[in-house]
Design a protein around this nucleic acid. Structure first.
Length: 292
DNA sequence: CCTCCATCCTGTGGGC
DNA sequence: TGCCCACAGGATGGAG
């Protein structure tokens, strides 16, 4: 079992990290125009139907707004051009001066006004960037996202409808971005712990009260993560790898804590695999079977 | 449509 | 000390 510190050595970007990135980019970049584009690894724009379009579509475009939906960033440019970015497993965004040395794996670099650069750093290249027209955006996976977990959380009744009849584990359904957009493996486990629901429970087996608890846990868990990101956002150290690991370590209740005592009841946290992903839980606080 | 599973990729650390 | 290998995970796409 890898140690907690190794597991958390590089934070996987989830909704709070993406929202922090959105805020980080907004003020310095909105109103500026693209003066240069460099793609260091073609794989990063693999979703671009015509690769050469990535550069030509962005050059000269003025940034109007920086939006987010789920874990996707949407940079809205004039002429109806949208730059869709996803940080994948290991991506992060940096702002830098043009002369500054690039961090390793700075795979996509976009220059604004010849004064500031947006760099997408992503060693594992699970992330991507793509420049799309409104027509292309409408059929992009971002268009199939469910409501945003932070800004548009569905009511309990709608959430319960979405889970009705579903036999897949609730943990897997929380990770399904078409139902709710923004939860990843870490926060899904934290949400389930807070809701006192075991991740292996079939989605349709949750009663109304349990669905209500799961829904109610999403906001506080994400906002706690956002506060952690927001706090250290002031510190440029945030931009370096591992800069925030410590902050998260203290916050997590179950993720990565197998063998350690539950912060609520002391029972050792356990790990199992659900949908090919780790699920961490407390079997006392989150009974695997619904109590009668 | 739903569920399950393989695939992409590379830094990291555990084991030998 | 150094090498090897398993592991981590978000999204996608195919099979059943």
């Amino acid at each position: 079992m890898p140690s907690l510190s190794s597991r958390m050595g590089r934070q996987v970007p989830e909704l709070p990290e993406v929202e922090s990135s959105r805020r980080y980019l907004e003020e310095p970049l909105v109103g500026r125009s693209v003066t240069g584009v460099a793609v260091g690894r073609a794989r990063m724009i693999r979703h671009q139907a015509i690769p050469v379009d990535f550069t030509s579509r962005l050059l000269g475009r003025k940034l109007m707004a920086v939006d987010r939906k789920g874990k996707y960033l949407l940079l809205r440019f004039d002429a109806d051009m949208t730059l869709v970015m996803h940080l994948g497993m290991s991506g992060r965004l940096q702002l830098a001066l043009p002369g500054e040395e690039c961090a390793p794996h700075s795979n996509v670099v976009i220059g604004f006004d010849d004064e500031i650069e947006l760099r997408l750093v992503d060693p594992r290249t699970f992330g991507f960037a793509v420049a799309v027209t409104p027509e292309e955006l409408a059929v992009h996976s971002v268009a199939r996202l469910g409501p945003d977990a932070l800004n548009a959380l569905p009511r309990t009744s709608a959430f319960r409808t979405a889970l009705r009849e579903r036999t897949a584990p609730i943990k897997s359904l929380l990770l399904d971005q078409r139902i709710i957009a923004g939860l990843g493996n870490i926060y899904a486990d934290e949400v389930l712990f807070r809701a006192r629901v075991h991740g292996s429970r079939p989605g349709g087996s949750l009663n109304g009260e349990e669905v209500r608890r799961v829904r109610a846990a999403i906001g506080p868990v994400l906002k706690a993560g956002l506060r952690a990101g927001g706090t250290s956002l002031d510190d440029l150290a945030y931009l370096l790898p591992d800069g925030r690991a410590g902050e998260y370590l203290q916050r997590l209740r179950v993720y990565g804590r197998s063998g350690l005592p539950c912060r609520s009841c002391g029972t050792p946290i356990e790990r199992m695999v659900l949908g090919q992903r780790s699920h961490f839980f407390c079997r006392t606080c989150q009974p695997p079977f619904r109590p009668r």
